[in-house]
Design a protein around this nucleic acid. Structure first.
Lengths: 67, 67
DNA sequence: GTGTGACTCCTAGTCCGTC
DNA sequence: AGACGGACTAGGAGTCACA
């Protein structure tokens, strides 16, 4: 389900025309980390789920949908 | 928002008449760990969010609502 | 049945780089 | 633009004794 989470991030990011690096900057995270999250390699923690959601302009719960 | 998450877990747990220990057992976690999550002291990661949601019989996204 | 401090172990997360 | 690797530090996972 990490994979589903990562895909969800990616499908929300792309329509915004943000690069992984852009998203990382806005979320206050590192670019390589965001990449590995999208690939489903990381077990991301709650604080960073909130950061990514905020940077993507969605509710945190939206990142866990369809899983 | 860790706090909100913890409260959400607690308010979902209590109607089920489960103790923290019961919930911990069902989720495959430690009793004191679940307690500290409910108190908002832990920055829980995605895997454990899924475990708790499953043990509570709700969708993981439901644990992030109302935050 | 729950709260809390302290602890170890492992991974979350960063930073450098290359392809 | 993104994938991926190595080395590193911060912090989450998991447990215990005791209140």
């Amino acid at each position: 389900m990490r994979r589903a989470f990562g895909l969800r991030v990616r499908t929300l990011r792309e329509p915004l025309a943000l690069s992984q690096e852009d998203l990382a900057d806005q979320a206050g995270l590192h670019r390589t980390y965001v990449g590995s999250v999208e690939r489903g390699e990381r077990n991301i923690s709650l604080d960073n789920i909130y950061r990514l959601a905020k940077a993507l302009g969605v509710h945190p719960a939206d990142l866990l949908r369809d899983s």
